[in-house]
Every structure is written in C-alpha cells, then in structure tokens.
Design a protein around this nucleic acid. Structure first.
Lengths: 252, 252
DNA sequence: CGCTGTATTGACCTCCTTCAAATGCGGTGG
DNA sequence: CCACCGCATTTGAAGGAGGTCAATACAGCG
C-alpha cells in the first residue's frame, strides 16, 4: 500500500530492497479517515509525521474574515511535515478532502528510519524539496497567471503528480474538490471559478464533471497555461518533462 | 559575521559553544557580491549551499511572457537550499538585490556539520520549516488579501525577520527593493504598487523613502493587515508574537 | 420527497491593469 | 559645479479581470 510513495521516490533515488522494506514499515499504522476531517489544526503541537496513502488532502490557513486559502494539495505518496515535530505548533491546518488512508508515523520511527539508510534520507530530502518547488510554482501562478491558466496549470500539475505516484495512467483522474475549494486554492471567488470552468470546457481544454477531471489533449492544455513539469523534478537528470512530458508513461 | 544566523537559530534551539563554533566555520568562505547579480540560475545544477550574511537577496521565477515572480526574500542569516544539491537542477534563480555577503558551503561541509551535532541538525531543520511557513503565508497573502494589506504584511514580516536575526532593532529598516521588484513580490503591477504606497504613507501606516521602510506605529500596521508573527516560530513555545510581538526587543 | 450543499446565472461594481507620458534623481563626465 | 544620462517614480485616462450579492437550478441523500 505504500506503492505511491515508492513510485514517487524512484524518481529521486535508486532504492534497494532493504530501503523499500524500511519504507514499507511506515504504513503499518495506517487508518482510514472520512472526507472533510481536520487531521491537525492550526495552533496544535505537531506530534508525528503523516503519510497519505490514498485520497486527497490539503493544508489550509484561514483569515479572521472567514476567508480561506488552501496552500497545498496532499496526494498519495505525500508526507506532511517530515520533520514537523521540530516546531512547537502548527501554523496551518491539515485536512482530508476525500476519504483518505493516512499513516501516522512517530518521530522516533522517522529518525530510526533515516539512521538506517542514507539513500532513504536523500530520497526524503528530495521529496521535501519537491514540495518547496511546488510552493514556488503556486506563488508564480497566483502572482502572474490569469485565473483560467491558473486552473489549467493546477490540473496539469495534479495529473503529473498522480502519474508520478503511479496512481493514475491515462488523461483523466479523480478530482474531489468542490468549486469552492478550487477557489480557495487559486485565490479567486467561487463564482469566477465556475465561469472559467465553463469556458475551459467550451474550448475543450479541460472538463470537470462528476468529481473527475478529463483532459482531452494534455499537450494542448499544457501549452495553454505554460505548464512545464520540470519543477517537479520527476527524474534523476531533472529534465524529464522539458519536452515530451505527456508522451511518456509514468515511471514503472 | 554569522551573528544573524546565530540569533535566528537561537529561537529554535539552545546551542552550545561547540555548536556555535561549528556554525562559525561556515562563513569562512564568504564573499562580497554586488547588487543585481544572479548567483545561480534556473536550469543549473546546484553545487553548494549558500548562506546570506548581509544584504538582501531573492529567489525568482520567470514566465515566457517576461513577467517575473519573486518567491522569497533572502535576509541575513538565511540559507538557500540547505540540501539543494540533492536535486539535479534549479527550478528558479537566486539573485542579490542589494550588495551582499554570501558564504558558499560545499555539500561535504554541510554533511560533516550535521554529523557533528544533533542540535545543529534540529536547528537547521527548524530554519527550513520556517521558510516553508513563510511560503504558506505568502500564498495566503496573494490569494486572499488586497494589495494594500499585502504590502503592509510584507513590511511587518520583514521587520520581524530582521529583528529575529538581530540585524535591526527599531521600527525602521533598510529596504532596497524597487517598486518594480515589490510588484513582483506581491503579484501586482508596478503602477499599482506606487499608488498603494502613496495611500499607505498618507494614512501614516508605512513610508518607503530613500530605500528605507519606516513604520511609525507597528502595532497599528499589524492590525491593519492582520499580521500575526506566530508562523515565524520565533521562540521555543511557538507563541511569541501572538500578543505583544512588537513590544519585545529582539532576543539577545 | 423535502433538505442541504453545490453549481449556475445575471447585474452591477471596483480593484487593478495597460499604455503612455512626465517628472524626479543619483550618478558621471566635462 | 553643471549638463546629461539612465533608471525609478509618479500621474492620467480608459479598459478588463474578477468581486459581490442575490436569486435560481440542480443533485445527492435520508
């Protein structure tokens, strides 16, 4: 059940059988969490590291005015707060969007794991660096792209990530966010998300129906929004995706 | 000359004399870099870790259209890419804004350093987690705050960070960004930055003159933009700044 | 079969952008 | 010390992207 993690990390490092076994151990304490649950909320002290095995989660922060901002999507194979226990308290909330399988890993297990294999350490560092890269890309998105390209970019990125984790193979994938949540991701109003979604569908760039995203022609969508998956660092040389990203099958 | 780093890390961990000495060792290879230089550009392979000792730097990403987005400000005591050498290539550029003193630290030195003291390891993790927290706050900023509050928030944050590193004590501080760069930080047009700056000055909230920011009444500014420094994790309990942030002197 | 949450629509408003020109200012060379 | 240059700041007018409010339609579900 930690397949997603393995797939993802295989972009970073060649892991030995022992490494894989170490990582397998992490998912033993996994539990199923219903949709729409806060896993840990702003202000609490982070206790352990979490690993998403299935489903969609997110990080979010709120404003006094009641407005919210979703700052990450958490997909299968994603850790949250690898070393979060170093901090005294959470500055944001982590929640499930859909039903999820989530493993909770105590700090000791993490340190033990990392003590055992330098390759695993590198792979985990790599994972956090990719998360950082995603944040930077989101910042670029919100700052400098119009809302339609922003949405398109989010869909491209999500597909790329889901593929990298082996969760999805084709050009369409489950996408449980409501339009309101989508609005909280890209920083616009719900109404506007709705209108843009219609336009994107009209132009046959993307369709969001029945909690699924369908991308008829991925290269065209990538072109439309200027998506270049390079920042996801999905292979050792770091340039996979510079060209021909969409042509390739996910790493197997 | 690594004072800023020490100050900053003292929020995270009590460092022994030996720890401090280890960290001191980092700044031996420091060099002075003129303003407006790219230190490492998008696409290159990161070679080493960098530590800013003085001056202002930034990370930025560009769009094909020529638009840019500044995704971080780098201040004295900030590392860039602690473990960046794990990645195959840079997905963004790092540059100086003002003249800077920057230390370049080879990967071996970093690993050696971290092997020598678990407290240093924790402290460095802490620093990267704070950087992440800043990214999240910026995302919230761009997504959900109007441009005037965004600017105000940036000034509050910068003052807080400069204070935490012991670089600044009072309520005004050097701020070498041009209005164009400021626009690239908050994701609006230069013209709009200009008009908002005038308004903020008119209301005596902040003034930006002669490459300095002056905040006549910090609590009022913080109130105006909803700044709560808690996400900067500036003390062990993590709640320093929830109330009375501005009253306290920087940690000494 | 009604309830609740999500999606959709229309009208109006405003924040912010774009373009283009003008002003100011810190150097630098004469 | 002055004239000049390049860069940053400032201003105006007009347009557009996206916001707000409020009503309506729709869908899943007990």
């Amino acid at each position: 059940m930690t397949n997603a993690l393995m797939e993802k990390l295989s972009s970073a490092e060649i892991l030995t059988a022992e490494d894989r076994q170490l990582l397998e151990g992490l998912s033993t304490v996994a539990q199923r969490v219903p949709a729409g649950q806060d896993l840990i909320v702003e202000g609490e002290k982070p206790r352990h590291t979490r690993l998403f095995l299935s489903g969609y989660g997110c990080r979010y922060k709120g404003l006094a005015s009641g407005e919210r901002s979703i700052t990450s999507l958490l997909l299968p194979g994603d850790f949250c707060d690898l070393n979060g226990f170093v901090l005294g308290y959470m500055d944001h909330t982590i929640a499930t969007i859909s039903e999820c399988d989530v493993a909770e890993i105590p700090p000791e297990a993490m340190t033990a794991l990392m003590a055992d294999s330098p390759r695993v350490v590198r792979a985990l560092w790599w994972a956090t660096l990719v998360d950082d890269a995603i944040w930077r890309e989101w910042l670029l998105n919100m700052g400098r792209r119009p809302a339609d390209q922003q949405l398109a970019h989010l869909f491209c990125e999500t597909l790329a990530r889901l593929r990298a984790s082996g969760t999805v193979r084709g050009q369409d994938f489950p996408f449980p966010l409501t339009q309101e949540q989508l609005a909280d991701v890209i920083g616009v109003s719900t109404v506007h998300v709705n209108r843009i979604l219609q336009r994107l569908r009209g132009e046959e760039l993307v369709a969001l129906e029945g909690r699924r995203v369908i991308i008829p022609d991925p290269p065209r969508l990538a072109e439309f929004c200027g998506f270049d998956g390079a920042y996801l660092h999905l292979s050792q040389d770091g340039f996979w995706g510079r060209r021909g990203f969409w042509e390739k099958e996910p790493v197997s």
